[in-house]
Amino acid sequence: MNVTMYWRRLRRSESAAFWLFLAPWLAGFLGLTLGPMLFSLFAAFTRWNGVGTPHWIGLQNFRVMFTSDLDFWPSLGHTFLYAGARVALGTVLALALAAMVNTRIVGRTFFRTVFFLPAIVTGVPLFVVWSWMLDPSGGVLNYLLGKVGIQGPEWLASSTWAIPALVLMSLTATGGAMIVFLSGLQDIPLELRDAALVDGAGWWQRFRRITVPLLSPVILFNVIMGLIGSLQVFAEPYVMTGGGPEHTTYFLGLYLYNEAFWYSNVGYASALAWVQFLVVVVLTVVVLRFSRRHVHHLGS
């Protein structure tokens, strides 16, 4: 068989085309995702400063983490607290906003735009302006609270209020979830709502008995995506609190960044990264399990 014939056959073969089209992604996946993942799994069992040779130390990183590291458990606990509050409140707010802008209210396009915008326009500039707004003495939030006769808290400077402050800020970035809810709401058959109306159900009953059950797959989706995102939070505490006060906002992401890039405990940081990953996976599975009894699927 000569070369041209071979080439012609290869060209006609669909499987060959598949692999050619996939080649860039496959190279990236093997070289920059799977490869590094396996290497960091290996590094989790070593002592390594990132440049020299890693020293195999077995389970010692994990033993230290779970028993003698004074930062690990508080960091994990505070990460859970932040993620839990952010996802719970954010989901409720997103659903409420979606339900309100799904009505025939005048100006709903304006409200949708306003609620969605901060989900896209986000990042460091917003974290900086929020730090300033949350300033205990010169900030606009405490000024407004003072206007209505409330002595505002110390926000980011207080170990009690730092996490609530970060959660409060995150609520304004909930527009993505609102859009997902909105498209879910628009899929609910109008006949169901009309039938309930005929039966004399009030708005709360319709919301509780029809909307929420029919929306439950979308709620589940938003909760899982929210958890995955907020368990990995990094830039907010890095820019706004540096992990303080008193390590209250020293979340897992910040902790392992410091271990890797500040203290050069790269082996230990790899172990932390795997623990973070497993926490995300386990929580997702738990939520999926729990939801199996509570999520309704319309039709199939």
């Binding site: 920059l32 993942m37 990132g50 368990l231 890797a260 790269v266 940081a269 990264a273 795997w274 973070q276």
Partner: peptide, 21 residues
């Protein structure tokens, strides 16, 4: 399926070795 699984991957887990690369 592998592609979809990478959606869940925290960046930190690949970051440290990628940095070394």
């Amino acid at each position: 399926a592998v592609l979809l699984a990478t959606l869940m991957l925290p960046p930190f887990i690949t970051l440290i070795p990628s940095y070394a690369i």
